[in-house]
């Protein structure tokens, strides 16, 4: 009998305690973040979409080699000695035309391994994370500042330069007896 009454008492008291807890929580502000309207505060070192600052890129290909999933592909063409390719913000002279610099975000695993080897710190993570697409091809981003025609032109220019150089070399090799008077 004693246990019976005790059971009733415990039931009533524990239900009251539970109800008090839930009633208090009615007035606790919700923890929900209303996402598209309110953006969550991101941590300082969050890793999201990559960005490449082409002004600083020297086309060294180190990021592409560091990438574990091969989502970065870079094509470069040597600049001609006569051309001025500009300087990086650190004052280093650029020597290569970056004819193509694509990152496939469908493959990217956001590991940030490409960021560390970059000698000019031109590839880095941004805070953009809303870039979903209906077509997977749209996730391939091209960062190259050159238009396809320009890139083609650079390739042709370099090939011509090479060909001229090779011709010169061949001409030199063909006339070894030529007195090198100019050498003095």
């Amino acid at each position: 009998m004693r246990e019976y009454l005790q059971n009733i008492w415990t039931a009533v008291i524990t239900i009251m305690i539970g109800m008090r807890v839930t009633f208090k929580h009615l007035f606790v502000p919700a923890v929900t973040i209303q996402y598209p309207d309110v953006k969550p505060q991101l941590p300082e070192r969050e890793r999201n979409r990559l960005y490449v600052n082409m002004d600083d890129c020297i086309g060294c290909d180190q990021c592409a080699r560091a990438c574990p999933v091969d989502c970065i592909s870079i094509e470069t063409v040597k600049g001609l000695p006569t051309e001025d390719l500009g300087k990086t913000s650190q004052g280093k002279k650029k020597a290569l035309w970056v004819t193509s610099f694509t990152i496939d975000y469908a493959k990217c695993c956001y590991c940030q391994l490409c960021v560390f080897p970059c000698p000019t710190e031109c590839i880095y993570m941004t805070d953009v994370y809303e870039f979903s697409e209906y077509d997977r091809d749209n996730l391939i981003y091209n960062f190259s500042t050159l238009t396809p025609e320009e890139a083609e032109q650079k390739k042709i220019n370099y090939a011509q330069f090479e060909a001229e150089k090779a011709k010169e070399k061949a001409a030199k090799a063909a006339a070894p007896a030529n007195p090198t008077a100019v050498k003095e």
Binding site: A30, V31, T32
Partner: peptide
């Protein structure tokens, strides 16, 4: 709404 607010959520908004 009641269930959401008791669980510190917002419910349908």
């Amino acid at each position: 709404k009641v269930s959401a607010h008791m669980q510190d959520r917002l419910g349908p908004m």
